[in-house]
Simulated scan of single mutants.
Amino acid sequence: MTWLHGILLFLATVIGMEGFAYAAHRWVMHGWGWFLHASHHTRREGNWELNDLYAAIFAVPSFLLIFGGLQLGWWPGFTWIGAGVAAYGAIYFGFHDIIVHQRIPTRYLPKSPYMKRIVQAHRLHHVVETREGNVSFGFLVAPKPERLKAELKRRGRQGVRAPDRDRTLAEK
Rank of each mutant, 00 (worst) to 15 (best):
P105N: 03
H30G: 06
V141R: 09
E146M: 00
V14H: 01
I66P: 03
D52V: 09
L50Q: 01
Y114T: 09
G82P: 05
G33N: 00
A21M: 09
A142C: 06
G94W: 13
A83E: 07
Y88Q: 14
V100P: 08
K116F: 09
S112F: 03
A86P: 00
Y22V: 09
P61S: 07
Q120H: 10
L72T: 06
I15T: 15
I57R: 03
K111T: 13
S112C: 01
L148C: 12
N51C: 05
V28D: 11
A83S: 10
M115G: 09
Q120E: 04
I57H: 02
A87M: 15
A55D: 08
G77S: 01
L148S: 03
F139L: 02
H25V: 01
H125P: 06
M17L: 05
F67M: 01
G16V: 10
P105H: 03
G46Y: 11
P143N: 09
G46Q: 12
L53S: 08
F93G: 14
L64T: 07
P145F: 08
D52Q: 01
P143H: 11
V135D: 02
G33W: 05
T106S: 14
N134K: 15
F20G: 10
V60Y: 08
F63R: 13
H40W: 04
S136H: 13
G68M: 01
R43N: 10
G68E: 00
H30E: 08
H41M: 01
R26K: 10
V100R: 03
H41A: 15
T130K: 10
L64K: 00
G68L: 02
V28C: 03
P145G: 02
F58W: 13
A24W: 04
H30K: 12
A83G: 12
S136A: 15
R26F: 02
G84I: 12
N51Y: 10
Y92C: 10
T106R: 09
M29D: 05
V127S: 04
E129N: 13
F78G: 11
G46W: 14
F63C: 05
G19Q: 09
P76C: 07
I66R: 00
W74T: 00
A23K: 12
G89A: 05
H101I: 08
H96W: 12
L109E: 15
I57E: 07
P143A: 05
V135K: 08
G19L: 14
D52I: 02
A90W: 15
G31T: 05
V119L: 05
N47G: 02
G31L: 04
I118G: 00
I15Q: 14
Y92Q: 04
R107G: 15
G19S: 13
H25G: 15
W80G: 04
H40Q: 07
Q71K: 07
F139T: 09
V128M: 11
V141L: 14
E45A: 11
H40P: 08
